[in-house]
Amino acid sequence: MRNAQLAEWILSLVTSPERAAATVGDLMENASELGMFWLGVLRTAGSLLWREFAEDPANLMGLAFRGFLLQFALLLAFFALFLIPVGLAGLIAGLFWNPTANIFDFSVFATVGQVLGIGLTLLVSFQVGRWMARRSPGRELAPVIAFTILDFAISSAAGMIFLRQDTLSQFLLSLVLGFVWSALFQIPAFAGAVWVRTKQTPR
């Protein structure tokens, strides 16, 4: 059953393959509807993942902080290596720009810069996810949870300092949106951790 194999793979990211298979068997026995089955799979995977984080939160937050610094340094380095040359090329092209000839299309530079920026950000996040996962053998995905919490805490603190919320509802909404944004931003890091986890020897 294809669904069960996918469920087994998801659970094997947070427990041993044998336990994942037995758990999927239990959930198949228990769930009368497909929706209930998947709800059980996701809730179980979430609980097991949270437990991995809760077992050693201090060390995982420390690892996430180092990952945060690494991400910042890598983004800075990539910015210097790729985006500054693109900007300089645009500047030089601008010097030779002749409005009547219209041989340069400046929107190309902006598009190249945006694509490079997004691509590099995703790549850096993926690599940081791999870097953290390799330093947390046996619970490769847990550092990404710590990273998400850290990112949320930092962005929330920055939001409270720099953005003005007039009402409590605005403040709460910004917190919720901030958390969703933090979680979405960690998808490449999560993918990097999954990459490492699937290459590790089963626990």
Partner: peptide
Amino acid sequence: YGVTIREEIIARTEREPSPGALYVTLD
């Protein structure tokens, strides 16, 4: 095993633990 333990808990305590909570506790 997982299924019977959960059923026994539901039958005797009238509380319905989530599968996740049960497996985490068993581990």
